[in-house]
Design a protein around this nucleic acid. Structure first.
Lengths: 355, 355
DNA sequence: GCCTATCTTGTTAACGGTAACATTTCTTTT
DNA sequence: AAAAGAAATGTTACCGTTAACAAGATAGGC
């Protein structure tokens, strides 16, 4: 099926080693020999086997990329960013869709190890992903977490400042008059949920508003989760006047619930969330959101991973916290505009923590 | 770094072959020996190298998947479908984002060959992708085209009935009173553009309407393309009253141009397109579209590819044409609803062509 | 022309598994 | 208890490429 160095060697009347030399730059090969070999390569349509090379060199040129949902535009953009950086560095990307399922995630991680990827980029399911990642830790295989940290797992991480983001979002709601603000978040074992909820709590506290437990609903961060949670909120006697959804998909589900009830955003209830949906923003610039520099999640994490692989970075774990910005649109009744989220003491768009 | 069969063998006091037997089911291994080996495997955290196995077995367990734009929700859904089917069959997916660039596509195809994927799923850039795919043809490596065919390249293909879809869409526009209908399509070397334009022409002809060349704009099928084309249309003295965009991204760009001009859809101009944008439809059920069974593009093409790989399918090329449905919403001023697109002479949701 | 330095090419072994065959170790049978 | 058959385990070689070393060819120096 596929020609090998030996086939080429025979055809060119040289040894396999000479063929190998030619296809690797041909240093120390007589020009005439090289031409003979090159002709044989062309004639046989020879492409050296990455598999065999990988076995020799222990370099597969493959990176793993695990995301919970490739259809979520947030992750799609992350994937594009990572893919671009990986390709330019000569790496391929093995894509895995964990569906937010710990078992599937585990399976993927093991498969990545069997496939001998040189590193892994992963937006983990949550804190309980830790055992899933231990095989990588034990093997000292490089990996970088994206978006979510994993409790008790110190490693490279690219995330946004969820606390500040949520605080800004809630502050905004408060500033336009809301006092009863619901929150739809994931369970506490997801770092972004924890942090965004902390931002929510801090904002309420700073404004002297009480935290009502019934206004915090924990569910899955997908459309169904948002849908169900909003249905609950709408069933309350004392409805919240505004709802903060932990991410874009959750917000979409929440929107759906509002619409099905014959109600409207922001007239009947305000809605804000993390993560813009670019396509959506074009057609209907509507949701007030915290917009994270999504593509940078992908490009930066890939760059960090590549540095680990090449050994350019050997120091302590890198923890990159990206800036997010508040995009004010109509979904809470305020006038539209962009307010950059500036945290005191930060000058660049990102910074690194670490000893 | 990683333990090998030999390390395990030494530790268990057996030969490498016995280790190999154990990790492959352990038939013909004494229970006690097997336990010793299993213990050594656990202690050394041994995971057999897929690379070495691939070299022996000539099976890498990897499939290539090339799409023009992973961020386009249409392709994201295709990817999810393909990934799910591939995973269940024990295959990994190498994801490539061709960015609609022939050179990049070429590079990816070559890389897939070097990596010895067992098959390729590809939504090709267009007819000019043919030379890019010839290496696969020459090697008799299985591949399946998704969404777009490639002129002069008879091979497995999963697509929707673009002609009928476009016809239905245009018929609908005509039925609600439009007579000057613009079309934004890609150049003629993209099969979907050709076919959708043919549907457009057929519908006009059937209604006795003239085809005005200035009402057909050829551009790239992305947001920028749609944006620029719509700007042109809006600049005409005799504007079209409705516009047909070749896909969702083009339609989004067109919408953007309309909005920036201070105009509105459908009040000032109607807009229809191929491909729903699910997220968008939830938040604002607005665009009248032809909805393709997107995920099936991914699942079906992956299944066909797997059948080719396993040799279950050896016959002539399979050409699956999926049914699409018209979803009527507000973007052309008609009342909302779903009208299934039924073509006479077709009973199932898909059919296979072939000699 | 002979010897050495340099250049070019070839040989061997190894990467980590496993197929195919060989050998050793039980069983079982008579 | 010896022979024969079955079961368990080991040996060798190979998948396709290349590192390391070996050897042959060529050229330069005197």
């Amino acid at each position: 099926m596929n020609a090998t160095v030996h086939d080429v060697a025979k055809r060119a009347g040289v040894s396999a080693m000479t063929v190998s030399r030619v296809i690797n730059g041909g240093v120390g090969v007589r020009p005439e020999t090289r031409r003979r070999v090159e002709r044989a390569v062309t004639e046989l349509d020879f492409v050296p086997s990455g598999v065999a090379r990988g076995l020799m060199s222990k370099r597969t040129g493959a990176l793993g990329l695990i995301v919970p949902d490739i259809v979520n535009p947030f992750f799609a953009i992350v994937v594009r960013g990572a893919e671009t950086v990986a390709r330019r560095a000569g790496y391929r990307l093995l894509l895995c869709n964990s569906e937010g399922d710990l078992g599937l995630e585990r399976q993927y991680v093991e498969d990545m190890i069997a496939h001998r990827v040189e590193g892994l980029l992963i937006a983990p399911v949550g804190d309980r992903s830790k055992p899933n990642l231990m095989p990588f830790v034990r093997r000292k295989f490089p990996f970088v977490l994206i978006d979510r940290s994993v409790a008790g797992l110190p490693c490279d991480l690219v995330q946004a400042d969820s606390v500040a983001g949520a605080r800004t979002l809630i502050n905004h709601l408060i500033s336009v008059g809301h006092r009863r603000i619901g929150a739809i978040v994931e369970p506490d074992n997801v770092s972004t949920a924890r942090e965004r909820l902390r931002g929510y709590a801090e904002a309420l506290k700073a404004a002297g508003l009480p935290m009502a437990p019934e206004l915090i609903i924990r569910t899955t961060a997908d459309r169904m989760g948002g849908y169900g949670a909003m249905q609950q909120f709408l069933g309350f006697d004392a409805r919240p006047t505004a709802v903060f959804a932990v991410n874009n998909m959750t917000a979409l589900g929440a929107m759906q619930a509002v619409r099905e009830r014959g109600l409207a955003v922001p007239k009947d209830i305000a809605l804000v969330c993390f993560d813009d949906v670019e396509h959506l923003a074009v057609l209907s610039p509507f949701l007030t959101v915290i917009n994270q520099p999504t593509e940078m999640f992908g490009t930066l994490s890939a760059e960090i991973l590549l540095h680990r692989i090449t050994g350019e970075a050997t120091g302590p774990r890198r923890h990159v916290v990206l800036q997010a910005e508040l995009i004010v649109r109509e979904s809470c009744g305020a006038r539209a505009g962009i307010v950059p989220l500036v945290d005191p003491g930060r000058k660049t768009n990102h910074r690194s923590k670490g000893p």
